[in-house]
Design a protein around this nucleic acid. Sequence first.
RNA 1: GCCCGUGUGAUGGAAUGGUAGACAUAACAGACUUAAAAUCUGUGGCCUUACGGCGUGGCGGUUCGAGUCCGCCCACGGGUACCA
Length: 852
Amino acid sequence: MSHYNAKSIEKKWQKAWEKAKVFQAKTDITKPKYYVLEMFPYPSGRLHMGHVRNYTMGDVIARFKMSTGHNVLHPMGWDAFGMPAENAAMASGGHPKEWTYNNIEVMKSQMRPMGWTLDWTREFATCDPDYYGKQQELFLDFLSAGLVYRKNAVVNWDPVDMTVLANEQVENGRGWRSGAIVERKELTQWFFKISDYSNELLEAIEALDNWPAKVKLMQSNWIGQSKGLEFDFEIKNPLKHQKKIKVYTTRPDTLMGASFVGISADHPLAQELEKNSAEISAFNKECRQMSTSEADMEKAEKKGIDTGLRVKHPLDPDWELPVWIANFILMDYGTGAIFACPAHDQRDLDFARKYKLPVIDTFLSLDDSAPVVDEAFVPPKSEKVQWVNHFTEIDIATGQEAIDKTIDFAEKNKWGKSVTNFRLRDWGLSRQRYWGCPIPVVHCENCGVVPEKKENLPISLPDDVKFDIPGNPLDRHSNWRKCKCPSCGSQALRETDTMDTFVDSSWYFVRFTSPKSEKPTSSKDVNYWMNVDQYIGGVEHAILHLLYSRFFARAMVITGHLPKTAKEPFDALFTQGMVTHAIYKSTETDGRDSFHFPEEVELSEGRAYLKNNGKEVDIIPSAKMSKSKNNVVDPVNIVEAFGADTARWFVLSDSPPERDVEWTASGAEAANKHLSRVYRIINEIVKNKVRPNDEDENLLKEMHRTIHDVTQAIESFGFNAAIARLYGFTNVLAKSKAGTEAKLSAAKTLAQLMSPMTPHLSEELWKIMGEKSLLAQQPWPAVDENFLKDDNITMPIQVNGKRRGQIEVRKDLEISEIEKLALEEEAVQRALNGEVPKKIIIVPGRIVNVVI
RNA sequence: GCCCGUGUGAUGGAAUGGUAGACAUAACAGACUUAAAAUCUGUGGCCUUACGGCGUGGCGGUUCGAGUCCGCCCACGGGUACCA
C-alpha cells in the first residue's frame, strides 16, 4: 500500500477539476445561485497565512453550496492601486505598474496550488484601465446625480518631500521619509456626499440580520447620531461682522455650569483674531501642525488660549463667559464651537483646572452631595440626580429628562433649536498620488470644472513617469495634463487627483457579476447574481470598507447601475480573525531588540533557545505576523512540505474562525499526521474483507450523527467544531469492528464530509473506494433521522449546584420517578445525612439539583 | 483618548444559564523494534491517601445553579476617516 503523497494527489485532481470546468460560474436562472466572496487581496507579492485562512473558509462554503445544488459564484481579483507600489518605485526605481502586475503573477502562482474553487475567468485588477474606466463612468454619473462635490480640507503636508502624507506615514509629527515636521495644508478636494445618507445608512443596519452584532454596533457608533441643542452666544466686544458664536451641545441641561466657550483653531473667528495677535496666530499654527488623525488629536495634551473675547450667557445677560481657542475642538463636527461644563466632563474639568477657570456643579449625586473636585461627575443619562437651581425648575430627574426639557424650553423661548447631528463626515476621495484611478474631470479657464465625456473614457494613467523627484508625477506631466475642454473645446488641464482606493473596493463585487460587460454592470447578471450571499473578510474592515460599499451600492441604485434590491449588497457577513505567530525576541548589548526566525529557535518545555549559541530568548505569544518581527510563516513552504490539504485543514482546525489562530509548526505536523492516518485507515478498509455483523448498526448511527453535526457546523461557520467532530468520527471508524460494507459506507461519508476542507485527499480516497465520478460533483450526504434517536439519557445530579453523581433514565420518565432515583444516589444520601432537602429542581432532560 | 472585541489546563480550544476542560498539540508510561522513526494502547486542571476542597484575567452582584447575565477594574488585539 502506498503512502499519502499530497504532492502528486493534489496536482492530479486540480487538473481533473479544471478539465471538467467544475468552478466556472454561468448565469443560469434555472438554478438557485449562491455568491460567496472573500475580500480581495492587495497584491503585496507574497501570499500570507491570513489569505490562506480567509480563502479556505470561503472555499469550504463554496464547495458545500455546490454539493447542495447551488450555482456558485466564487471569483477572485486584485485590489491593485495603493501606496506600496509607489513606495516601492521610490525605493528601487521601478514602475508601480510593473511592480503590481509582477506581484499579481507571483501571488496567483502561489494561490493556484491551494485548490480553491476560484473562477479565474472573471479575474481583474482594479488598476486595469478597463476596470477603472468603468469606475470613472460611475463617478460621472454620481457627479451629475449631485452625489459628488468639491470643498476645502486639510491634509498632512511634508514640506521637504513636497507631498501629502497618509496618517500612517506621520511618525511623532514628522514625515517618515524626510523627518521634516509635518504641516496641515488646506486643499480643494473631491467628496462623496455620504453624510446625506447618515440616517438611511444607520436605520438600515438593523435589518442586516446576518451581520455580526459587533460590526453593526461599530457602524452605528461610527455614524454617531446625536440629538442636541444649537444656540448662539452673543459677543460683548464683537469683531467686525461676527457678533455671535453658534454652539452645538448634547448636554444643554448643564448650561448653568458653563465655564467658558471654546472654539476650534480653524473657526472663522479664530482665523480673524490671529490677524491681530501674534500669540493667537502662534497658537493656531501649533494646532494646525497636529497630525490629522483622530487618535493623535485626542491623545495630545489639551491646550488653549484666551481670546480676550467675552460672551453673554443666554439665560443671564449679566453673566460673562470667556472665549478660548482649544486644540481639542474640531471644526468638522457640529459648529466648531462649544460651551464647556467642567463639573460634568473630565476633559473640560482638566482644562478648567489647568487654566484656573470656574467649576460649577449643576447636579449632584443623590447619595453623595459633595461638589466636584478633581473628578468630573458623569453619571449615566438614565440615573436620577439632584439638580441645583435648574432653569426648567426640575429638581430630581435623570440627565435624559433634563436634556429633553431643556431643548423644549429653549425652543419655546426661541433662543435655541433642536438639532440632530451625525459624526459621519463626507467621504474625501481625492488623493494627490499617481497610482490610483484618475478623477475624470477637466479644469477649463472659461468653463471651470467640467466632467470628461464618457466616450473619452478611460482616462488612463500615463506610463512615462518617474519617482526620483519629490511630488506627484501627474502634476509635472504637462503632456498628459493638456487636453481639450469637453464643453468649449479650448485648451484645458486634467485633474491630477486620483481616487481613494476605497472607491475601487466599493463595487468590485458588482463587477465580478459581469467582468467584461461594456457598461459598468449588466442588468441580466446583476439581477441574477446580486447580492453577495456570503461575504468574508477581516474585522479590520468593519467600518470604512463596508460602510463605503453600502453607500456606493445606494449611489449605484440611484444612477441606475443596480436594482433597488441590491441597496444592501452583502446579505451575510463573516469576519475572520488573524493568523498569528509567536515572536522570538532578544535584547542586544546596546539595548536594541533583535528578532529571530522560528527556524533559528529551539523550543523546550515552553522556553525558547537560539540554536547557534543556546542563549534563551523571550517568547511573545500570538503576535500579528509581520515582516519586521521575523515571525511570518510562508504558506508556500508549508504547501511544499505537507501539501495544500494539510495547510487548509490546519488553518480551519483548533481556533474558531472569528478568532485569531496561532500558527505552530507542531500543529501543522499534527494536521498532516491526521490526514495520513485517514488515508491509511481507508486503504485498510478497502483491503480487508469483513462480513456484516452486530457492530454495523452502531457505526451507521455514529455516521448519521456525524453528518448531522458536521453539516450544522459548516452552515454556522463552526469549521473548528466540524473538524473536531471529524476527528472523533475517524477514531470511531478506526476502532470499529463492523463489516466491510458498513465501514465503506462510513468511510465514503467521511471523505465527503472532509471534502470541503481537504478536497484533494477526499477525491483520491473516493477513487480508491471504487467510485468513478468526481466527488466535487456529488451531492452532500443526507441524514437518516431514524439513526439520531436515543431512548435513554444521562442526567447529572447536583447538590447545591455541585455535581455529585449521575443517573441513567428513560427519556420520558416521570418527574416524580426521577426525583426518587436522584434522592437514592449515594452521594446525595451522604450529603443529606438523614435530613430533608429544602428544594429539588428538575430540568427535564437536562439536570437535577438537590438544595440542602 | 474614544468605539468594538478577546481573556478557560503546559498549549490551541469545547461547553442553548445546567456534568468545566469535548477534540487536538506538547508531555509521560507501555506495546512493537537490535535501535530509532512511524504506528498502536494508556495517563492527563491544582491540592488531598481518602472524604473532600479550590479552579474559566481580578473584585463584587443576580440565580437553586454563572465560563456564560449585570457592575467596576486589569491586560491584550482591531478601528479611529490618506495602510489596505
